[in-house]
């Protein structure tokens, strides 16, 4: 999940929903989409700004681990594919920033919040891409998890968010497949190449499961988000879906999922899986993952280095519109 632990704000105890909020909830229950100009409770607006901007930041920061391999892709074909994929991530970030802006926050404010550390992005992008196989594992597992989360969001209650999700999901399927395709090549290659794929799976498996966020028992904001239909399945439901879908895919590759407790549970009709190290997750969220500082430093540098260029484009646009006015006079 690209948005983790989104705060839904706190309701003042004993404070009943007022009439407008009741009407609003009724519209959501009836499946009517909320559009930017419609009245909405302040908490709904703020929660969505947090959720959508966190999602957007994840797309943008998510370019970095893979972008790291563009110049080192093993063939021109893989390089072209990876370039297209990373460009898509930028596009996804832009669709989402636009959706968040319809709620009344400016683009610059969101960028500032990312750089200052006020806004979060998904914990998963704070892990390093050590080998080429990691790029495949990200497409397969990370984009796979993202799709799992994003497909239901195509039906979420906020119109601009749901429309952005529809565009993103269409493109995301390519991301997952190119990752799996890359791992198929490695697994059919030399023993060393297959080992490289196994090593990537070993390192990305658990962080991918953590992407869905804390267990349901510990997700304090889930209930409100579900009521507002900006979250349609719980963290554990989505995580289970991910495990069930991925185990046969790993078997096909001939890779072993690094979980000794993983086994099919015929009674439940699902795979049981081992305990997740939540301490690691919270540590990464707090900013102490392997790459947190590097990721934000890279984003800030790109923003700062581009400042003169952004300004130059504005100066050019001003000059052109002035000369147009003069010509018209």
């Amino acid at each position: 999940m690209y948005a983790q632990m989104v705060d839904t704000g706190t309701r003042v105890a004993g404070n009943e929903l007022d009439a407008a909020e009741v009407r609003f909830q009724k519209r959501i229950d009836d499946g009517i989409r909320v559009e930017p100009q419609d009245w909405m409770p302040d908490r709904y607006r703020k929660t969505l700004i947090r959720q959508i901007s966190q999602h957007a930041h994840s797309e943008i920061v998510g370019q970095l681990p893979e972008g790291n391999w563009i110049t080192r892709a093993p063939s021109l074909k893989r390089k072209a594919i990876l370039l297209a994929k990373v460009q898509d991530e930028a596009g996804h970030g832009l669709y989402l920033y636009s959706a968040a802006e319809t709620l009344g926050i400016s683009r610059d404010q969101m960028v500032d919040d990312l750089h200052s550390g006020k806004a979060k992005y998904s914990s998963i992008f704070n892990y390093p891409t050590l080998t080429w196989a990691d790029v495949g594992a990200i497409g397969w597992l990370v984009d796979g998890s993202a799709i799992m989360n994003q497909i239901p969001l195509c039906r979420c209650s906020y119109g601009p968010y749901s429309r952005a999700m529809i565009r993103v999901c269409k493109e995301e399927a390519f991301h997952m497949r190119q990752g799996y395709d890359m791992l198929m090549s490695l697994c059919r290659g030399t023993p060393e190449q297959k080992q490289m794929a196994q090593d990537a799976l070993n390192r990305w498996w658990w962080p991918s499961l953590m992407m869905f966020g804390p267990p349901d028992a510990d997700s304090v904001h889930s209930e409100q988000s579900k009521q507002w239909k900006i979250k349609l399945f719980t963290n554990d439901e989505l995580r289970q879906k991910m495990v069930d879908q991925t185990v046969p895919q790993a078997e096909y590759l001939g890779l072993t999922i690094p979980d000794a407790d993983l086994k099919w549970n015929a009674e439940r009709g699902h795979y049981d899986y081992g305990a997740i190290d939540w301490e690691e997750f919270y540590n990464v969220v707090k900013g102490n993952g392997p790459c947190n500082r590097e990721r934000i430093a890279t984003r800030k540098k790109a923003w700062d280095d581009g400042e003169w260029f952004r300004e130059a484009l504005v100066a050019h646009a001003d000059k052109k519109s002035k000369s147009k006015l003069q010509a018209a006079a």
Binding site: A84, Q87, L313, H316, A317
Partner: peptide, 23 residues
């Protein structure tokens, strides 16, 4: 199809090409 930021119309078209017509 959506929106984006740009300093002028020409750049808006260029950016729209990249953001909304990659396929």
């Amino acid at each position: 199809v959506g929106s984006l930021h740009a300093p002028d119309a020409e750049m808006a078209i260029n950016n729209a090409r990249d953001v909304y017509t990659r396929r």
